[in-house]
Design a protein around this nucleic acid. Structure first.
Length: 391
RNA sequence: GGUAGGGUACCGAAGUGGCCAACCGGGGCAGACUGUAAAUCUGCUGGCAACUGCCUUCCUUGGUUCGAAUCCAAGCCCUACCA
């Protein structure tokens, strides 16, 4: 990893380089064992040690700074020990930059059908071969240590929405007690460690969880348990209810977010880090993201549209091929279509983050945000709306 | 020319007297997707109208029947074999 002339700082160092006057947004640098991460940052999701359809070279090309990988999936296949024997996760997947590993806590939630939660962790049935697996705070930390990620996450319990106050309260209790156990575990050299705030849609539970974690002193703090099916206002409020209790001098990360609009709002609330499968998954499913909003490029309306996927975009996909071609490739299920569109979507997400960071540093986030609000539509890009109305 | 089999919606293919606007697959059209059991899943696909409605369909024409994609007759076309 090139440190680009900067003098390396100890892992965990988080420097806030600029703060926005009109919101809680800030631009920072988080130092990891594999170099600095400029925030706000979006982390493409590489669950199984790969961001689906993108090579390490392409990830770097679109400006990826840090990736997310998943402990549970890598435990199942190829097994953590295998990766350790292959020189650790970075070498295994040929990615020299920082990597954050999710603890598997989210799989406790998403694989609900094949698990049983106990005091000390969760008994899973492998979703691949049905084999019995156990994942708790001890196991999750050992696994992340074996993987050698730059940032390890607490093993938490995520709860579906809506949750009763009682259920949410129990998940906060469990998340806190597991966090304490996680904290006692050994970590890889230079490995940072983040706590995760739960509490569903209850502000006082969010507060209690956040305060409890802050008292344990983590390198950074995540907001979990959002984007689990709740309406957007509830989602944003959950973030608001959590972020306010987290220290200014530590990085803040909202897990699983999200739509570009949600990310932009969260940055303004003071969130520094994001991850989401949306750009990569929606690319595979035929939706293109643009600065104006998403649009279904697989739709028949683009059959003969010779414009690039996004006009004015500098990514390889947009510099090289037309949306008609991308649509065709997706339509006939050729892997190149998925590849090109994933490249574009991830590029789009990262470009938004770079723009915001530059605007914060320039003291111009307000102006940027105003333009953003005027051009962005979560319902679809202007191009798409125009085509839809016209045909 | 003879014998046998067959002609069903964009394509393939079920159905062989009423529960049929007609199974299923492909194709087409659209939608969903937020710490990835997801290159996945869902819906629509005769016309019109649009909570359970109406109209026109199963090669064509005529017939049997209360009722036909389904039975009968003739014609047209396709396939295989025989001459």
């Amino acid at each position: 990893m090139s440190f680009e002339g900067q003098i390396a700082k100890p892992p965990g160092t988080f420097e806030v380089v600029a703060t926005d006057a009109r919101s809680h947004a800030r631009a920072g640098v988080l130092w990891t064992a594999h170099g600095p991460v400029e925030t706000p940052v979006f982390m493409p999701v590489g669950t199984k040690a790969t961001v689906k359809a993108l090579s390490p070279r392409e990830l770097a090309e679109v400006g990826t700074q840090i990736l997310l990988a998943n402990t549970y999936h890598l435990m199942v296949r190829p097994e953590v020990e295998t990766i350790a024997k292959c020189g650790g996760l970075h070498r295994f997947m040929a990615w020299d930059g920082p990597i954050l590993t999710d603890s598997g806590g989210f799989q406790v939630f998403s694989l609900a059908g094949i698990r049983k939660v106990t005091e000390s962790g969760v008994r899973f049935q492998s979703h691949v071969d049905g084999k019995a697996l156990f994942l708790g705070p001890v196991e999750a930390m050992a696994a992340q240590r074996g993987l050698g990620s730059d940032i390890a996450m607490c093993f938490d319990e995520c709860v579906a929405w809506p949750a009763t106050r009682e259920t949410a309260c129990q998940t906060v209790d469990k998340t806190l007690s597991w966090a304490a156990i996680c904290k006692e575990q050994e970590r890889a050299p230079g490995q940072l460690f983040f706590g995760i705030v739960q509490g569903s849609a209850f502000p006082e539970l969010r507060e209690r969880c956040a305060r409890g974690l802050v008292a344990m002193d983590f390198d950074g703090y995540a907001v979990g348990g959002v984007s689990v099916g709740e309406p957007e206002p509830v989602l944003l409020q959950g973030i608001r209810d959590s972020v306010g209790w987290l220290p200014e001098e530590k990085p803040r990360y909202v897990m699983g977010l999200g739509g570009p609009g949600q990310i932009v709002e969260s940055v303004r609330m003071g969130v520094d880090m994001f991850d989401c499968v949306m750009p990569s998954r929606l690319a595979r499913h035929g939706t293109a993201f643009t600065a104006k909003g998403p649009y279904p490029v697989k739709n028949g309306a683009y059959r003969e549209d010779t414009r690039p996927v996004e006009e004015g975009c500098g990514c390889y996909c947009c510099r090289t091929v037309s949306r008609a071609y991308v649509r065709h490739l997706l339509n006939v299920k050729e892997i190149l279509g998925v590849h090109l569109l994933t490249l574009h979507n991830v590029h789009r997400y990262l470009a938004i983050m770079r723009e915001m960071r530059a605007a914060i540093i320039a003291g111009a986030l307000d102006a940027w945000h105003e333009t953003w609000t005027q051009t962005w539509s979560a319902e679809g890009s202007a191009d798409h709306r125009l085509v839809s109305v016209g045909s």
